[in-house]
Amino acid sequence: MLSIFKKKKIPPQSEKQLIELSKADSRYFAPIYEKYYEQIFRFVYKRMNGLDEANDITSQVFLKTLINLKKYKHTGAPFVSWVYRIALNEVNQYYRDKKKKRTINIKDIDVKSIAVDVDVFYNFELQDKMIATLNELDDLKVLLLELRYFEKRSFKEIASILNITESNAKVKVYRLLEELKKKLT
């Protein structure tokens, strides 16, 4: 009977164990939060306009992660990919609710790396062209560019975040590069 009041304290070792324990007691989620907070915040911030908005959404992402943790099943993909998917949904939901324009944050160096891959000479004009081209792309294509070029993620990571196969991620990115080449030249 006393076991109802006293919860056994097992020192968890792996992330998998922590996830399983967090399903019953959310306090065990603290090390996972500590581990992924920064990368999730930066991921959200890249898609937002301000720090406060990014902070609100990041909190919401971890809250949703905790709420849906019971539904999570280990499929071999890293746990953080699942959290990234929740983050993407939260960002999309934010823009739908607020009816605002989605924010894209780019750097010169990112445009340069795209220019190298599409075999186009980089100059300041290209940056303006790139901004104009981005405005013509749909959300999924922008997301692919962000993941691959603005965040420098591997195809494996892109695949696990988008819940597609690695080869499918490669095909989508190469098709997008072809489209960009046509538009930038």
């Binding site: 920064e38 930066r42 306009n49 720090l51 924010t103 894209i104 780019i106 750097k107 010169d108 981005l134």
Partner: peptide
């Protein structure tokens, strides 16, 4: 414009996070 595009925006520091 479909998107709001920021170029070379400063990233927050670890202390800010």
């Amino acid at each position: 414009n479909k998107y709001k595009i920021n170029v070379n925006r400063q990233e927050p520091s670890n202390e800010e996070l």
